[in-house]
């Protein structure tokens, strides 16, 4: 049994407006494991993801990273976030900074590294996502796929214990998706611990060690990637068939 990196127990989130987005979600993520969370829009999967690094404060429940509870008022939230990488649906690269500076900002300002050291790490991670040739470009001059790969590199640079992907390919044109998925698959092969919220069922099946299907704020079905072929619950069957109709 490998070590549990991320552990979520009875997570609940009630938004201020009264929407009960997450109604008690629990799962563990082991070292080197990649977990895909699938589900229809509004099922609470993005909320779960954001609760993990406390971009959204959970209303109740326990989130543990490396065994430490991180959703207490006393935990250093900035330190925690620097240990959890996050990749956003809409990339969220810092538009006023060049690719290199995007990567090194956190290293310099959070880790307090010198510019030289930070640049060295940035070159390594940009090499991993195959973006070394656009190192001085502004994000505005990159294609969507390139931007997402830079965003992945930005998360990697902080040497996170786990990376959260929030629908990394939803904002991309189909022909650009490939390169991003390639990169994520590469990370999975290298043994990076990942939680991926995605609509790409096929990708989830290929990459994820485990699939979590969420609906209406609850984990409906959980299991190895093979559950996509044989969904046990009716709701997941419905969901998968609606997806297949679209494609």
């Amino acid at each position: 049994m490998s070590e549990v990196v991320l552990s979520i127990a009875d997570l609940e989130k009630m938004y201020v407006g009264g929407v009960h987005a997450v109604r008690g979600v629990s799962f563990d993520v082991n070292q080197g494991e990649s977990v895909a969370i699938i589900g229809s829009s509004g099922s609470g999967k993005s909320t779960v993801l954001r609760c993990i690094n406390r971009l959204i404060e959970p209303t109740a429940g326990v989130v543990k990273l490396g065994g430490e509870q991180i959703n207490t008022p006393y935990a250093d939230v900035n330190d925690i976030r620097s240990r959890i990488g996050m990749v956003f649906q809409s990339f969220e690269l810092f538009a006023h900074l060049r690719v290199l500076e995007n990567i090194t900002l956190g290293l310099r300002k959070v880790r307090g590294m010198s510019v030289e050291d930070a640049n060295e790490i940035a070159h390594q991670v940009l090499g991993r996502v195959d973006m070394l040739d656009r190192i001085h470009a502004y994000p505005g001059n990159l294609s969507g796929g390139q931007m997402q790969r830079v965003a992945i590199a930005r998360a990697l640079a902080m040497k996170p214990e786990v990376i959260l992907f929030d629908e990394p390919t939803s904002a991309l044109d189909p022909e650009l998706i490939g390169s991003v998925l390639q990169t994520i698959r590469g990370l999975a092969d290298e043994g990076m611990t990942m939680v991926i919220v995605t609509h790409e069922i096929n990708f989830a099946r290929d990459v994820a060690d485990r699939i979590i299907y969420m609906d209406e704020g609850l984990v409906v079905e959980e299991g190895p990637s093979s559950i996509i072929q044989n969904p046990k619950t009716e709701r997941m069957q419905k969901f998968l068939s609606s997806i297949n109709e679209e494609h």
């Binding site: 690094n53 971009l55 900035n78 620097s82 900002l105 300002k109 959070v110």
Partner: peptide, 27 residues
Amino acid sequence: IPSGQMEAGRSIGLTYMGTMNQVVLPQ
């Protein structure tokens, strides 16, 4: 400025003020 910029800044471990100074205000 898209709220995602603040989230992105916070998610790499910058403080609120750090994100404000390094990411949001420059834009």
